[in-house]
Amino acid sequence: HDTTVHINGLRIEVHGASEEILKWIEEAARRGVEAEEIKRWVEEALK
């Protein structure tokens, strides 16, 4: 999927993410993980 995830006011563009990654992002956000940190993880995961 190409999608934009909104976390604590930060937009994260996610290209080619699976449902699993999207669920993981939402879970991390709920746990209060910094949005910048999530963004870094997602970029690494999608390389």
Rank of each mutant, 00 (worst) to 15 (best):
V33E: 05
E44G: 08
R11I: 15
I7Y: 04
V14A: 05
E26N: 08
G9C: 06
T3F: 14
V42K: 00
A28D: 00
R31G: 06
K23F: 07
I12S: 01
K39L: 13
G32A: 03
N8G: 14
A17D: 03
A45P: 00
R40W: 05
E44H: 13
E13W: 09
E20H: 10
E26R: 15
H15F: 15
K47N: 10
R30M: 13
I12Y: 05
G32S: 02
N8P: 06
E37K: 09
R30V: 10
G9S: 03
K23H: 08
K47G: 07
A28W: 15
V14I: 13
E13D: 14
R30G: 10
A17M: 07
V14Q: 01
W24N: 01
W24S: 01
A35S: 06
G16M: 07
H6Y: 11
A17K: 03
H6E: 15
E19K: 12
K47R: 13
A45Y: 14
L46Q: 04
L22V: 06
I21E: 01
K47P: 03
W41G: 01
L46W: 08
I21S: 01
I25E: 00
N8S: 07
I25L: 06
R40S: 06
E26C: 12
E43A: 13
T4L: 08
H6C: 14
A29I: 15
H15V: 13
E34A: 14
I12R: 00
H1V: 13
E27K: 05
V5H: 04
I12G: 01
E19M: 14
G9R: 02
V5K: 05
K39H: 05
I12Q: 01
V42R: 00
L46G: 02
E13P: 09
A35P: 11
L46Y: 07
H1D: 10
E37I: 12
A45T: 09
N8L: 04
L22G: 01
W24I: 02
V5Q: 03
L46I: 10
V5G: 03
D2G: 15
R40G: 03
E37F: 14
S18I: 06
A17Y: 05
R40L: 07
K39P: 01
R31K: 10
A29L: 15
R31L: 11
A17W: 07
E44W: 15
R40I: 07
E34H: 12
H1A: 12
H6N: 14
T3Q: 12
H1Y: 13
S18A: 06
A35C: 06
E13L: 07
I25A: 03
A17N: 04
G32C: 02
V5E: 03
H6A: 07
V5T: 04
E19C: 06
I25T: 00
A29W: 15
S18D: 07
I7E: 03
E19L: 14
A35Q: 04
H6Q: 11
T3K: 11
E44T: 10
A17G: 07
A29C: 08
W41A: 05
I38Q: 00
E37D: 10
W41E: 01
A28C: 05
I12D: 01
T3S: 12
A28S: 05
E34S: 14
E20R: 10
L22R: 08
V5M: 09
A29M: 15
T4M: 08
A35Y: 12
I12A: 01
K23I: 08
A17P: 04
K39A: 09
I25C: 02
E43G: 08
K23A: 09
E36I: 11
L22M: 12
I25V: 08
A45G: 03
W24C: 04
N8T: 04
K39M: 12
L22H: 03
T3I: 14
E43N: 08
E34D: 14
L22S: 01
H15G: 13
A35K: 04
D2E: 13
T3N: 11
W41I: 08
A45V: 09
I25Y: 01
I38C: 01
I38H: 00
K23C: 05
G16Y: 07
A35G: 07
A35L: 13
